[in-house]
Design a protein around this nucleic acid. Structure first.
Length: 370
DNA sequence: AAGTCGTGGGG
DNA sequence: TCCCCAAGACT
């Protein structure tokens, strides 16, 4: 890692901010410095690209224009606003945070990063982003862009996946950022990281800060940032039972903890939870086992048949699901033992559903069409 | 400290 | 198909 002189730091600040003033992106959440706007955008942007976020942000602001509106919204509406964005605990934590603000802060945002960190769902990065952008506090906002940009500029070879590395970057960036325009500086770093200093195919030759990029000058740009790779997703087998009860669809709500919490799917059963002798299962035996499962777990009498379609596959960060599809039917009955409800098409469209459920519908309809 | 928690895009 | 990556936080 290299060190910059005060002169170099000054030159970098001027070059970066001059570039940002003319080339900075015009984004919906940059129209003002409202902390609510900054906050919503920052939460949405966690692990998510700008292009994906923009339409979600616009709709979210239309549905929940204020902290109070967010605090009072039904959770199903919140999840519907977040449907497809992923990491759904983000939006549930946002509502907890909104209620926390109203209950403990008289509806007023704390104005320092240190205080913002006390709020639910706001970690070190988001606290720095809100404090610098909305309240002009000269604090860094260390996200993936900051890791990538500064590790290359200064050839910092600390592993960014290690807890503790963030503090190193915070110390370095604190010394470099200008105290008069901290929000613009942090956002300029993000714009730089999303344009000339991307992860795979950087265009440093045309970058405004090319001459400050030590890794590039040394021909080692793609060696940064240093990170340890993640394990591959664990495979898990499921059976999806697309079930009609009379004219309605049988839908289950997932539990309040864990993956896809509180979202809705068709009944989804882990193959391991069926009493099956082997891993490779003839479809007839699978149907029998699922019928027994419906009786045992839901007290529902199911009739079912296999669907002649390829299994649905869906990969999450840590799991890869392979889902066999069955078509089923139950007589209108008591759903007291079933964690869900039957819904018509109209009600179905109101339920928040994960991407994997969309894939199940698509595959199911492809079978019906044949 | 290391796992958990989604989805879309690109090579 | 698979891997990696993208404005992280929580446990």
């Amino acid at each position: 890692m290299i060190e910059w002189s005060p002169t170099t730091i000054k030159a970098f600040q001027t070059t970066l901010l001059t570039w940002y003033d003319t080339a900075g992106r015009d984004l919906p959440w940059r129209r003002d410095q409202e902390p609510y706007h900054v906050w919503v955008s920052e939460i949405m942007l966690q692990q998510t690209q700008v292009q994906t976020v923009i339409p979600y942000y616009e709709r979210f602001m239309a549905w929940f224009p204020t902290v109070t509106a967010l605090a009072e919204a039904p959770e199903e509406r919140l999840l519907k606003a977040w449907e497809g964005l992923g990491y759904y605990s983000r939006v549930r934590n946002m509502q907890r945070c909104a209620r926390q603000l109203l209950a403990d802060y008289e509806g007023q945002w704390p104005q320092t990063a240190a205080a913002l960190t006390e709020l639910i769902g706001i970690g070190p990065y988001t606290a720095g982003a809100i404090a610098s952008i909305a309240f002009n506090e000269p604090v860094p906002a260390v996200d993936g862009n900051a890791y990538r940009v500064f590790s290359r500029l200064l050839e910092i070879d600390a592993d960014i996946t290690k807890p503790g590395t963030r503090q190193l970057f915070e110390r370095v960036i604190s010394r470099i950022m200008p105290h008069d325009r901290p929000g613009d500086f942090n956002q300029a770093i993000m714009d730089l990281g999303a344009s000339y200093m991307t992860a795979r195919q950087p265009d440093t030759e045309h970058s405004p800060v090319k001459v400050f990029n030590q890794a590039y000058l040394d021909g080692k740009e793609l060696d940064y940032p240093v990170r340890t790779k993640k394990p591959r997703p664990q495979p898990i087998d499921y059976v999806a039972v697309v079930t009609k009860m009379g004219p309605d669809w049988l839908m289950t709500q997932r539990g309040s903890q864990g993956m896809l919490a509180n979202l809705w799917t068709v009944p989804l059963i882990k193959l391991a939870d069926l009493d099956l002798p082997t891993e490779t299962v003839p479809s007839a035996e699978l149907v029998t086992a699922v019928i027994a499962y419906f009786k045992r777990e839901y007290q529902l009498t199911l009739t079912a048949e296999p669907l002649a379609v390829r299994p649905v596959t869906h990969t999450f960060t840590h799991q890869k699901w392979t889902i066999q599809l069955l078509s089923g039917q139950v007589a209108p009955a008591d759903l007291a033992f079933f964690a869900g409800k039957s819904v018509n098409e109209e009600a179905l469209s109101q339920l928040p559903m994960p991407k994997v459920q969309t894939k199940i519908w698509d595959r199911y309809h492809s079978a019906e069409a044949k």
